[in-house]
């Protein structure tokens, strides 16, 4: 069943890798003189199983392919991302550290004392935009987001938010402002935990990214009530989900996903990672990451990413009021 070449490649790999991983990672780059020292670690500032975790792992695998380096992923969850970002701040000047960034990079510094903002780091690449769906349990009485808003006027509606200041919390805040209602919020640490809470009936509704609930939506365990996007999704599975605006709630908000390097790294290191990111953006791995997670592609590098972060910062500031 197995071709001899697989066997060859396999045995050669294991033997050489066990003995030479270190050497290989120092010699096999093609981008000129510079190469990161040692193992590269991608920090994910959220628990395993959420959208951030998925993007961190995709980036690690994609860059591994683009550079030939050995890249591992490390989850450092807690404090709605603050623990991971704070840890990353301690990595200043290291050229072998990356972090899977998302909205918390901008929203955390705006909402509390964290000792960093997006200018503390070196932005490398924006991958794309991820919109949220308002999701409820399959057997819930709610049919639309309008129903949910209506219900909050007469009873308590409990919503999960993964991260006290993440996209979930901002989206909910925008709905509250737009409709002049109030939700009860329970904080969780990742989309995975929120899914479990919805399935267990511990919360009534939750905003989630499509990738976090694709399996459950398909099986009917969870239902999407509306999408907080400007237009309906083009992805087949979500084409039927109306936008919030269609239901009279004028809220559309997306979060970016990308990756950043620590502050204070050398220009060579920054150029190296941007070149690697550009290679990754051309690959099938990048395209399938965007499609598998039902995101909108928006590849931006280096300075363009910084400009994008500046805009986002202004938007979030407005949203948090």
């Amino acid at each position: 069943m197995k071709s001899p070449s697989t066997l060859y490649a396999g045995s050669a790999l294991v033997i050489s890798a066990v003995l030479l991983t270190g050497c290989a990672s120092q010699n096999s780059q093609s981008e000129g003189e510079f190469a990161p020292s040692g193992n590269v670690v991608v920090t994910v500032p959220f628990a395993a199983g959420g959208g951030s975790d998925v993007s961190g792992r995709a980036v690690a695998a994609g860059l591994e392919e683009a550079t030939g380096l050995s890249i591992t992923v490390e989850n450092r969850e807690g404090g709605a991302g603050a623990v991971g970002y704070a840890h990353f701040q301690g990595q200043e000047g290291r050229d072998n550290a990356l972090l899977a960034a998302e909205l918390a990079l901008v929203s955390l510094p705006l909402s509390q004392e964290v000792g960093f903002d997006y200018t503390s780091f070196t932005p490398i690449m924006n991958l794309g935009s991820d919109y949220a769906l308002l999701v409820t349990a399959g057997d819930s009485e709610f049919e639309t987001c309008a129903d949910v808003v209506e219900a909050t006027r007469s009873e308590t509606v409990v919503t999960a938010v993964s991260g006290a200041t993440g996209i979930d919390a901002i989206t909910i805040s925008l709905v509250e402002q737009d409709q002049d209602v109030e939700f009860d919020r329970i904080p969780y640490e990742s989309g995975g935990e929120v899914v479990a809470a919805l399935l267990g009936g511990h919360v009534d509704v939750a905003p989630l990214n499509p990738s976090e609930v694709a399996g459950q939506l398909e099986s009917g365990d969870l239902r999407a009530l509306c999408a907080f996007s400007e237009e309906r999704y083009e992805y087949e599975q979500l084409a039927d989900v109306p936008t919030a605006a269609e239901q009279g709630i004028d809220v559309a908000f997306s979060q970016f996903r990308g990756f950043i390097a620590p502050g204070g790294i050398s220009d060579e290191a920054r150029e190296y990672w941007i070149a690697a990111a550009e290679t990754y953006a051309e690959s099938d791995a990048y395209r399938s990451y965007i499609e598998d997670n039902m995101m909108q592609p928006n590849a931006l590098f280096g300075d363009d990413f910084v400009a994008f972060l500046e805009e986002t910062n202004a938007d979030v500031q407005a949203a948090l009021g």
Binding site: V18, L19, L20, T21, G22, C23, S25, Q26, S37, G38, N39, S70, N96
Partner: peptide, 8 residues
């Protein structure tokens, strides 16, 4: 640690 795992 240094050769196989590449820890600096």
């Amino acid at each position: 640690f240094v050769i196989v795992l590449g820890i600096p």
